[in-house]
């Protein structure tokens, strides 16, 4: 079974290598704190019965979203799964819009028409969160095909979990992207569990994404997904490759989900001590220590924490005060004429 020992096969964070610079590091830290605070708040609001439906949190996986978002340029496109809150927030979508959608209020990103699993913000490059496993890998290929056809320089980035590597669409998309040399980056967040079952129990290879890369003529890449610097560096490499017309990348980020699969899952299937071991490698803890190593003052870090906390508090209050969606949107936007008419 894949456990924390897999860390041994992951390249270590590169210590005091200051290739990233303080401004970017503070950005990477802040993004992770936004994701952590907003998702922790979503969980609290769920316990208060204010977040409805389901929700799939990325608590513990923030470094992947922050590292990739930090390497993206305006115009780059994100394709997410139902575990997409973090990737949506990381592209700069306001916390209030995301919490509003989770709370199914009229101020939500899609006014409650999509819900937690379908966060979409085209103006921020978030081209959707897809709740059918694997569906968005081919879709990201299509967006990348458009960039290639138009001679545009944007890159499509597709985030998915380890469980996705065992569905057909994963393999169709990888082959398709490789054959067409598309500017797309496939990012597997390997959090060790497909849903409730360890990925190692249902997968023929140790690294469910990276060990399949060779089948599609791609490099085998495994990265420490709890280290935002490591993720940011590998993301930059993949973006450079994609923008140069050299085709797709497949990157497996080793990480861990602090919460269960979804709100209904207490994650009792985890072996004793596993969560605690991974919490020692909490991406935000790691990053806070790194900032201190680089001489960032504790007051600066605390300042970011407080600023983000206030944003999330204000968003929470705004969402609690927001009205429910009106009934007249039930029949809007079924078709492009804005309505739902299927007959004359």
């Amino acid at each position: 079974m894949a456990t924390i020992k897999d860390r041994a096969s992951v390249p270590a964070g590169s210590g005091l290598n200051d290739d990233i610079g303080e401004a970017k590091r503070l950005e990477l830290y802040r993004t992770q704190v936004v994701l952590r605070e907003a998702e922790q708040r979503a969980y609290d609001l769920f316990l208060q019965n204010l977040v409805k439906g389901t929700s799939h949190l990325s608590l513990g996986q923030e470094a992947v979203a922050a590292g990739f978002a930090g390497a993206m340029q305006k115009g780059d496109l994100s394709f997410c799964t139902y575990r997409g809150h973090a990737h949506t927030l990381a592209r700069g979508v306001p916390v209030e819009k995301v919490l509003g959608e989770l709370m199914q209020r009229d101020n939500g990103l899609m006014r409650g028409k999509g819900g937690s699993m379908h966060l979409t913000s085209v103006e921020h490059g978030v081209m959707g969160s897809y709740a059918i496993i694997g569906a968005h890998l081919p879709i990201a290929c299509g967006a990348a095909w458009r960039a290639q056809y138009k001679g545009a320089k944007d890159v499509s980035v597709c985030f998915f979990g380890d469980g996705t590597t065992n569905i057909g669409a994963f393999h169709e998309a990888l082959n398709f992207a490789a054959v067409w040399k598309l500017p797309v980056i496939f990012v597997c967040e390997n959090n060790l569990y497909m849903e409730y079952t360890p990925i190692s129990e249902v997968t023929a290879v140790e690294h469910p994404a990276a060990d399949r890369a060779a089948s599609y003529g791609l490099e085998r890449i495994v990265v420490d997904g709890n280290d935002a610097d490591a993720v940011y560096r590998i993301a930059q490499t993949a973006f450079t490759k994609a923008r140069a017309g050299k085709g797709p990348s497949l990157i497996e980020c080793m990480t861990y989900r602090h919460s269960g699969h979804s709100r209904a899952d207490p994650a009792k299937y985890r072996p004793e001590g596993e969560l605690e071991r991974w919490k020692l490698r909490d991406p935000i803890k790691i990053y806070r220590e790194r900032l201190l190593q680089f001489g960032v003052a504790e007051t600066v870090i605390k300042g970011i924490d407080n600023e983000v906390r206030k944003i999330v508090d204000d968003a929470t209050e705004a969402c609690k005060a927001a009205p429910n969606p009106p009934f007249d949107i039930i029949t809007t936007d079924v078709y492009a004429d804005g309505g739902w008419a299927w007959r004359n």
Binding site: A135, P138, C141, G142, E172, A173
Partner: peptide, 23 residues
């Protein structure tokens, strides 16, 4: 005008992604 592999999901998904982004 492009030939694809025998990958109906890839064909459909690629058409959708292209349509969503302007083709």
């Amino acid at each position: 005008v492009r030939d694809t592999p025998i990958s109906e999901q890839a064909i459909m998904g690629a058409a959708m992604g292209a349509a969503m982004t302007g083709l």
